[in-house]
Write a protein that binds this DNA or RNA. Structure first.
Lengths: 408, 408
DNA sequence: GCAATTTAATTCAGGAGTCAAAATAAAATT
DNA sequence: AATTTTATTTTGACTCCTGAATTAAATTGC
């Protein structure tokens, strides 16, 4: 039985009835994938199409190997002919999701049903490097991953890749990235040529947003924003169940919206960016003053220190976090004023420094937004496990593969 | 002949081929309306549908009175059977567009082809008032308008209304408006009951944006932002040829995005809103200091003074405008970072104070945005005639009427 | 144990919408 | 007048989907 509360399956879960003009074939497939398992009658009911259509579409999908009937359905109760559930046939294809970052690349192998089959990591320089080097690292990573799962490159239908920077998902061109020395690198083409598999690139925040939409707290929601605080401040937005990539395809750079005229210096070289008040390096910058000593350690060690001191009641350390939290609140309230999402997810792998989203900061955010008759936009903190980003990248690839095979 | 450069017709002009899943009937109608006049073959070519379909669809549309063939086609040159152009049959219906504001309401009468048939104005209090009063004023305005055109209320298919404030276009509820004393007023329902005609409400910035999309500089563009500086700072956004109203339907409040933590006081009661640095009242507030004298005149007179002084080289007056311009640049750069539009239109009825969008301010805007390989987003200044807002409201009504009569 | 009931799934005869290609129409050229 | 060119209409077919009737497989009641 299809169950709203159930969290099996993956992919965006349709909230209303049938949406738009996609072939019904694809809609049925995506519905079943989203549900995890669903009998034909549920498909018909919730997609608001006739049972007859479902029969013909599913038999087609079963014949071409995309769906399969679930064997054991030891039914609990109820009269009538028992429904036989359908599910995505995992063996219909495999995709890889990859996250490229500054210290560690990671990747997951995923089947068509969204199940993770293997993971792998590959450490890297920690410094900007030429994209040729990055491509080689991605190549090694893929080899490790496939070896672990006992698969060949030929088994892979597509690879989704997420990386920080300004990425044009449509063309695969990386206009700028903090991990690459080049600008306007055609990383998509280069990866495809090197790996011998179709590659889909996107900004890491978008990939994280897809992870929320497909596997996380965003399932079943059609309009929400995802904000992530790691090295920088990233943002992704889902509108009408789909990732919004900006009118021209270059992402939503919340981190570089200005929150202060002639403000603090950002690593992008401009002044007053939100990032320059909220990101880790902004905190580290002030830590030297607050802790009143030489800073010889690495950035993350300094932050740990600062955080511990703040917890201990160190006034200056607390002040640093508190101001950052207020600026985060300001940034989030701007998101609310402009996009009016139903929810904001603060998401990421290691959202620690909870000073940033302390009660008071969130209250301030609500206070900064225009009052409406409805309750203020809920902000939810969602810290994930290790493989989020890579899984989101896999979702990117899954989406492309199903659209390619089932789409118009 | 259909001609891209021609600016007859109205309505969004499709840029690419056929877009989505709207009935072709409606698409053909909207194409012809957008083109002003177009022969069947052009419809087929540009919508990428078969000539046969165009014949059957247009004959249907002609039979039901939506389209008509153009009589005189004194052709220039060319062989073959001469094309016979189609156009929207103006008499297929009438709509009214209405702008409600604080000093003066205005309205236009428009036929289905988008041609203006009459205008009317109605002065009003200049102060916040109960929505019952506003409804009465709208009623008088409608009467005047119809009298002038010699029409009955029954001739009107729909009324589009634009007003400042936070308006839910889907429900017609006005959450808050600077011209109303009430909050959460169901103005849509009330107007409909009073006027006896279907009413479609929207925020005034959205209505202006529709005016640009249907009749102005936005025709043929599918992704652009409109920013308007009047009493406050408003914004509208077109994505994929359609007005974007925010995920939950409550507009894009650029004027109340925060550009300074604990900044200047805004009329909304919060601090640091963009409006509090750029809108007229923000300038008036500083004028007293700059001009060094008692301010007993009205706001617009003060501004005139200030502007004249600035033009004369008065340092403090110039400084006021210059700072406002820089904040405007900041706000626009945030719009670019978040939405990545192809163009920004600075639009409105009386965009004077050109200090605000001086060369240097626009250069600063470009400089504040992340550098991309493509040229910076162009900003275009577009000051309109008197009836813009009302025409935009008429477009809102036209859209609703055609969707209702031709849609699924 | 056997009908009656209930729910699931399939079959099949259309219907709406669209297209491709052939036919027709109306002009300019030869 | 025949030919060419371009615009429009006609026609038959095809795709996708629906809705009603039918078949399938279980439970319930007697």
């Amino acid at each position: 039985m299809y169950d709203e509360a159930d969290d099996s399956g993956c992919g965006p879960r349709p909230s209303g009835p049938r949406s738009e003009a996609q072939p019904l074939r694809q809609q049925v497939f995506e519905f079943v994938r989203a549900a995890g398992q669903a009998p034909r009658m549920d498909v018909a009911r919730l997609l608001e199409i006739s049972p007859g259509s479902v029969t013909s579409l599913t038999s087609d999908l079963i014949a071409s190997g995309f769906l399969e009937e679930v064997e054991s359905a030891p039914r609990e109760a109820g009269r009538g002919r028992p429904p036989v559930a359908l599910q995505v046939a995992g063996q219909a294809g495999l995709v890889v999701g990859m996250k490229l970052a500054d210290r560690m690349h990671s990747a997951v192998l995923v089947d068509m049903a969204g199940r993770m089959l293997a993971e792998a990591e590959e450490p890297c320089g920690g410094r900007r490097q030429s994209y040729g080097v990055t491509v080689d690292e991605a190549d090694r990573l893929l080899t490790t991953l496939l070896d672990r799962a006992g698969r060949q490159r030929g088994d892979i239908s597509a690879i989704g890749v997420g990386l920080p920077g300004i990425v044009d998902a449509a063309t695969g061109i990386v206009a700028w990235s903090p991990i690459l020395t080049e600008t306007d690198a055609d990383l998509g083409l280069c990866l495809r040529d090197h790996l011998g598999v179709p590659v889909h690139l996107d900004n890491d925040a978008n990939v994280l947003t897809l992870a929320e939409l497909w596997f996380g707290a965003g399932r079943g929601m059609s309009d929400f924003a995802v904000v992530t605080i790691e090295h920088g401040v990233g943002m992704g937005l889902v509108l009408g169940g789909e990732l919004f990539r900006g009118a021209q395809g270059l992402g939503i750079e919340l981190g570089h919206t200005k929150v202060h005229l002639d403000g603090a210096l950002c690593r992008c070289g401009r002044r007053g960016c939100l990032e320059a008040y909220v990101a880790d390096y902004a905190l580290v910058r002030e830590a030297a003053t607050a802790l009143d000593r030489e800073m010889t350690e690495g950035a993350s060690a300094i932050l740990e220190h600062l955080y511990a001191e703040a917890k201990n009641g160190h006034g200056a350390a607390q002040a640093i976090f508190r101001r950052a939290g207020r600026y985060l609140a300001l940034g989030l309230s701007n998101v609310v004023q402009l996009f009016d999402p139903t929810k904001i997810l603060l998401s990421g792998e290691r959202l620690r420094y909870d000073y940033l989203y302390a009660e008071e900061a969130m209250a301030e955010m609500a206070q900064m937004s225009l009052p409406l008759s409805r309750p203020p936009v809920p902000v939810e903190i969602h810290a994930w496990g290790d493989w989020v980003w890579a899984r989101g990248a896999a979702a990117l690839a899954l989406d492309a593969v199903t659209a390619d095979r089932l789409g118009r």
